[in-house]
Design a protein around this nucleic acid. Structure first.
Lengths: 320, 320
DNA sequence: GTGAAAGCGCTAACAA
DNA sequence: TTGTTAGCGCTTTCAC
């Protein structure tokens, strides 16, 4: 294994000079820098991450708690994670994977100094992890908005604005009776906050425009088709539907052919479902990028807004 | 921050004794162990991961390369990852997330001693990472089977056996013309190995039983429905279909109502699609568990088979 | 502009 | 059964 001492010897300099060449924390003569860099390349030197973090007291690793439980929209989760990884790598950070189900995972990762910061996904309104996060010695950013976000940094899509946008669009289109087909029941019972914000915005804006609106929790499976049939049988006057349920979308789309539909999901998900032409894009990748950017900014000592809600883009109209 | 020295002082022993109490690498008197453990608990001591790995030359971290590119079946990926995490945590290992798209990620993680081993997903027949993995100083386990697996440890589902099983079942059911609707074209052009093994097993077994069989690459989106319509229009004599394409499944299921269908996917995916009653279960979670187990066994000095193919279970018949 | 050396917190000889 | 101590490979004072 090549160490910094090997590089120093090869370049004819001291160990500290090599270190400073790598970190750029003090000025080095052009000549010396050249020789050191040359030695690094020829020896294929890569600094030992543990040695570095022991000495510097920073691991350059971010702990990421990913939800693996049912009901979560796997496409969205994957895209968020992809955004996080690329943003982190761009700033020389790695990602340690922690499962969201393991209550003690955050503690372990932080307590053993494995991570410099935390990124927490799938936050519920009254999330049990919140007290620990608030007391955490390392910065944390939540993707999702809990009821009491005091003292926490949160990032999310602005689901309330999205709900409002859809309702207003439906009103502009002349509808008088609309519905929101939302997250599966298991997500609602967990009180995942986005569901409540989405329906809040939707219902409020509909009421303002004197449009009758209801909200329905559909399973994210084929059973959603039955639920939809029952709903439309009972309330045939529903002429427009906002759908935020990736699992159910392909199953209910056919039965919605004669209704006006807006889907809330990543565009590529919508694109793969026939009959869906209007989409409020869920910017999952951007969400990951912004969240990772926020936590890295905190690590860099920059101040970041405690609450960032990504606004929905204008309705995407799809050709086919 | 609490260090091992604090614990030693509190317990009235030397730091090595504390270390040995934690590792169990030498016999400690019941009395001493008790006092040390007590001190650990009251101080809330958690060993510094970097210090430990610097001294022990083991990080207790496994690098996991996850595919984030298109065409991969996200549900399957998530389940495999879940299996990996739980198996790793059970043996006190953590997971460092590496993206499959970053060719240099493996090198970095290994070169900086961040990981003790590698787990590589989404392996293609002629994977560009193979030479590096073969030369890697740390053990690696591939989830997927490349063309030349010499010197590598690979774990995968036995797709050939699954293909065979489906064809034999169809033959037993009296079909004379069957089809396999397989992975999307982008997966095939990458030569992801499972697609080829699946179709190989399917075609061979069909030929042995004198059943006419064809294989079709369908997009994993709504367009699959068109492809299916075209296929059935051209070859109406097809009476049974094996489907291995999670994205396409919900879209093509309705049009297959009057055909005999077997789906190859995780059971919960099949359960969420109406009209699917027979399933060859893709044991994604087990795949992750077995792969992680294999790489950990190697780390423990145990010898593991260089090639492990999880056999398909008997056909799952679903009630609804 | 550069070097020497003191740690960072732990593991694992070596010694008793 | 336990303690002493020399590193592990790096960062960062402090000194020149």
């Amino acid at each position: 294994m090549t160490t910094i001492a090997d590089v120093a010897r090869a370049a004819g300099v001291s160990i500290s000079t090599v270190s400073y060449v790598m970190s750029g924390k003090r000025t080095i003569s052009e000549d010396t820098r050249e020789r050191v860099q040359q030695a690094i390349v020829t020896l294929g030197y890569q600094p030992h991450a543990s040695a570095r973090s022991l000495a510097s007291r920073r691991s350059n690793v971010i702990g990421l708690q990913v939800p693996l439980r049912s009901g979560v929209d796997v496409h969205v989760v994957m895209e968020i994670v992809a955004g996080i990884i690329s943003a982190a790598r761009a700033r020389h950070y790695d990602i340690l994977l922690l499962t969201g189900d393991d209550e003690t995972a955050l503690d372990r990762a932080v307590g053993s100094s494995m991570v410099d910061a935390l990124l927490v996904m799938d936050v519920s309104t009254d999330d049990p992890r919140i007290p620990a996060l608030r007391a955490s010695p390392v910065p944390a950013v939540l993707i999702g908005v809990p009821a009491d976000a005091e003292g926490l940094t949160v990032v999310d899509f602005d689901f309330a604005a999205a709900g409002r946008q859809a309702a207003i669009q439906f009103a502009d289109d002349g509808h008088h009776r609309v519905a929101l087909i939302g997250a599966p029941p298991e997500v609602l019972t967990r009180h995942t906050s986005y569901a409540e914000r989405l329906s809040g915005g939707f219902l409020d804006a509909a009421a303002e425009r004197a449009v009758a609106a209801t909200v329905h929790a559909f399973p994210s499976s084929a059973d959603a088709a039955d639920s939809l049939r029952a709903l439309l049988a009972e309330s045939p006057e529903i002429t427009a539907v906002l759908v935020h349920n990736e699992g159910a979308l392909p199953h209910i789309a056919p039965a919605l052919a004669d209704r006006d539909v807006i889907a809330l999901c990543p565009v590529d998900v919508a694109r793969s479902v026939p009959g869906i032409h209007r989409v409020i894009e869920l910017p999952a990748d951007a969400l990951g990028t912004v969240a990772a950017g926020a936590v890295l900014d905190v690590l860099d000592g920059r101040t970041v807004p405690t609450r960032t809600l990504l606004p929905p883009a204008p309705l995407t109209i799809m050709s086919t």
